[in-house]
Amino acid sequence: MTLLSVRGVGKRFGGLQAVNDLSFDVATGSIKALIGPNGAGKTTIFNLISGFLHPDRGEIVFGGTAVHAMPSFQVAARGMVRTFQHIRLFPKMTVLENIMVGRHVHSRAGFLAGMLNLPFTWGEERRIKEKSFEIMDLLGIVPHAETEAISLAYGQQRVVEIGRALACEPKLLLLDEPAAGLNMRETKEMGALIARIRDMGVTVLLVEHDMSLVMKISDEVVVVSYGEKIAEDRPLAIQKNREVIRVYLGDDEC
């Protein structure tokens, strides 16, 4: 079953065709990787899918609904939640509070209820906290619950950011270079974590430069170059694809 479908999407910035007629599907319950050389348009594609940018052409269908015209918060509320290439945790907030923000779409206390401290919000706050601790427990970050999130080590900040996304209980998790800046051991752990998230029933689409990670955990790989798809296949086949090798290594070498 297809959870996300990108159909003929194009995006132009002034004279630059950043993404051109791009199409691919993400199957429910799979891990799909989006790879390509620097400047290939991977982050632009991510921004288009998550509602941070809107395509000039084509459509993006998520769970049967066209989402390409929606603002990012509506896309998130529908169950497609992203992380950022440069970690974007909320400063001056603890790890717990960061993850509690992730429960936003699953709670409803508004301005009036908050100001009047209405009784229904008490139970809601308690459930938000419980769920947040559940997620921190899953990720092994409970000891850092009361630490300011941005004071943690880089690798742990990544984990908190993923925890915050998981708190939204997404159907599709978009990870923008989850291994960037991590050392080898952390990268390995990140790979195991992503596989675990998939096993929990969350579909994953990731942009990643670390080829060993991509080849190990992905069910399918899409390769883009200059905003166009040049290959889409299983990891092993991608490794042997002549066009992919040409794009990554240049013509002369092969």
Partner: peptide, 22 residues
């Protein structure tokens, strides 16, 4: 409250707040 947390999130990292559905 929940709204206070959301506002702090908007203040701290607006794009990430949007990505959390706020």
């Amino acid at each position: 409250s929940r709204v206070g947390r959301a506002l702090a999130a908007v203040h701290g990292a607006e794009d990430a707040a949007g990505a959390m559905g706020i």
